[in-house]
């Protein structure tokens, strides 16, 4: 079974590698053939397989910290806080997702109003399908939406109350305008003189669409899940990340102290250019020590530092290429391969 599994892995690695290799080396078009036509979809599928691992990451977190909490091992309280935070953020994100889905549904419905009017008119012209019940249904729906927005209380529970009230009033006006224009369109269609009225109706619906977008954005930002999410992210996560980053300043000083001690000739060789680069970088160097320091600093970085970095880069790139070929063709024993390892 393990042997079969290893063979399958080698086979799929080869096929996958072959596709990406050919996609990269071949020109975009060979005659009439477009080799990379479905490249985006294939890349997305590969990414999706990778995304499945996120679930395994979650399981790992629950396993490591769950066991610690259950056994009341050292630091169990930290694990508890971690899992609590994880659950809290997960719930917030799910609520946020649900809200954004509802938002998308409503927006899509309002966007479809214009398409609906066009279709009603077209089908009346071509197939003589009765437009009245269909336009009445649109007017009814606009009335329902208007009432829903009027009765909505979530908009008022926001720091942007004035914006919300203004946009809400705009929405009601636009919905009334669109309903009135649709009513007029019905009459115009009856008189068979509807070009101008149709245009006015579509303009009104377009206005309603943009107001709906604005209203939904405000509503979405005002939702509790969104506000709590922003609070957790901006109030906890970002400052904690910044705090970790700020530690670097102190660690750099500590590391610099250790390296710049005159312990060996290598340390001296390291220290002298470092001193020149530092003095060349800060304003005090050229001002009080020597005005040519910035130029020496530039020379050191461009003509000594950059070539050294490039040399390392070349070596790494070629080694990476060789490693890729070895993986692609399954040339060497895989560290993941349990069968090939000695027992």
């Amino acid at each position: 079974m393990t042997r079969l599994r290893n063979k399958l892995i080698a086979f799929f690695t080869f096929i996958g590698g072959l596709y990406f290799f050919l996609e990269y080396i071949l020109p975009a078009h060979i005659g009439g053939l477009e080799f990379g036509k479905y490249h985006e979809q294939i890349s997305l599928a590969v990414q999706l397989i990778g995304l499945m691992a996120i679930g395994l990451g979650l399981i790992n977190i629950f396993r490591v910290h769950g066991v610690r909490i259950l056994k009341l091992q050292g630091g169990w309280f930290n694990s508890f806080v971690l899992l609590l935070g994880l659950a809290f953020v997960l719930v917030l994100q799910l609520l946020d997702f649900r809200r954004s889905e509802q938002r998308s549904d409503l927006l899509l419905e309002v966007k479809n109003f214009s398409l609906f009017v066009n279709r009603v008119v077209l089908e009346y012209e071509q197939k003589q399908i009765d437009y009245r019940p269909r336009l009445d249904a649109l007017i009814d729906r606009l009335g329902v939406l208007k009432t829903q927005v009027k009765n909505s209380s979530s908009l008022l529970a926001t720091g942007k109350q004035l914006d919300s009230e203004r946009t809400e009033a705009q929405f009601v006006r636009s919905a009334e305008g669109a309903a009135s224009a649709t009513e007029q369109l019905k009459g115009a269609l009856w008189q068979n003189n509807y070009r101008e009225t149709k245009k006015i109706t579509l303009d009104q619906l377009a206005l309603l669409q943009s107001v709906t977008q604005e209203l939904l954005d405000l509503n979405y930002e005002a939702s509790p899940a969104r506000r709590w999410g922003n609070f957790v992210f901006n109030g906890f996560f970002t400052p904690l990340g910044s705090a970790m980053f700020s530690l670097l300043a102190f660690y750099i000083v500590s590391a610099a102290y250790r390296s710049f001690r005159f312990r060996s000739w290598e340390a001296v060789v390291l220290m002298i250019p470092a001193l020149i680069v530092m003095l060349g970088q800060i304003p005090h160097g050229p001002l009080y020590v020597y005005s040519g320091l910035p130029e020496i600093r530039r020379w050191l970085l461009e003509y000594l530092n950059t070539p050294a970095f490039r040399a390392i880069f070349f070596g790494s790139a070629i080694a990476g290429l060789a490693m890729s070929i070895r993986i692609w063709l399954s040339l060497e024993k895989s560290p993941l391969n349990t069968e090939e390892t000695k027992q």
């Binding site: 691992a53 395994l56 990451g57 560290p335 993941l336 391969n337 349990t338 390892t341 000695k342 027992q343």
Partner: peptide, 19 residues
């Protein structure tokens, strides 16, 4: 750092212990 890396590291560790 990466869940995919976690999966492969775990498999490698198992393989090493088995070896």
């Amino acid at each position: 750092f990466d869940p995919e890396v976690l999966v492969l590291s775990d498999a490698t560790l198992q393989s090493a212990y088995q070896s």
